[in-house]
Amino acid sequence: MLRIRKLPIIGFALFIIVFPWIAGTIPAIGNYPDLMIFAGIYCLITIGLSLLMGYAGQISLGQAAFYGIGAYVSAILTVHFGLSPWFCMVIGMLIASAVAVLVGVPSLKLRGHYLAMATLAFGIIVFIVFNEEIEWTGGPDGISGIPGLSLFGFEFDTVLKYYYLVWFLVFAAFIFTINVIQSRSGRALRAIHISEAASSAMGVNVSRFKIMVFVYSAILASLAGSLYAHYLNFINPSTFDLFFSIKLLIMIALGGMHEVWGAIVGAFLVTFLSFEWLHFFEEFEVIVYGIILLLVTIFLPHGLVGIPGIVKGWFRR
């Protein structure tokens, strides 16, 4: 498990690169690249969350707040002040990490359900601010007219261009995260997950590591939020409510919490299930979604990335 192989990553990268060209030739999935942009944006958040939950063992039910902070900072600064989107994106990440330190220092001392509730409360408070501060955030009607992104005169104005931008960033985050996991810090994180007391005795600065991972996950979520805002050109608070935080948790659980791959598979699956595949069930959509979630929880305790292991087990018998 510790060694991360390069081959699957290269294979996945190739798949991502050629996918839009395949989808372009099949009318029935012509909108899939568009969906993949959102899947990629969610991947950014779940990669960070997976490091926090699966590796450092800290739960967060407030991740939507950082996603929202990124989106709102980008939207407010570009729309109200006309600043450059890239600059705003960085400001968003800085603000998100400052907030993460502020919230994380007292919160990460809490354990288990107390931490879950604290992060949940934080998420709800941030949502209420988005909803109430109409002068800045537009209230429930949101902010429209957020500019698109461009780099040295190159406009990311089509689905295809934005697709490659988002996925470039996802791979950057993915590879960076994998390197962190394989480094000394990664071992320290896993040690914290297993036993805080033991790792502390071994000389690991537990609280510093926890804060660092929390900040890292906040930065990724904030980046995702900025990308979302500049792609949709519109944001409103309901995108960043606590149900989105729960949805992120579901992505991680469905994909598999103990591997970064799980974060990616989970984000894909939930995006496509909720945006496309379950439309067919109309009003039953919610029930089917719940049943899928329950079945995976019962039969695949390690999430979808656990399937190969189970299949291997069958052959060994």
Binding site: F12, F268, F272, W277
Partner: peptide, 23 residues
């Protein structure tokens, strides 16, 4: 091993997309 997983995921996507596609 993981390549296979990837393939399975990819084919699933394509398959479901085609089946559920609009008439």
């Amino acid at each position: 091993m993981r390549m296979k997983k990837l393939l399975i995921v990819a084919t699933c996507f394509l398959f479901i997309g085609i089946v559920v596609g609009p008439a």
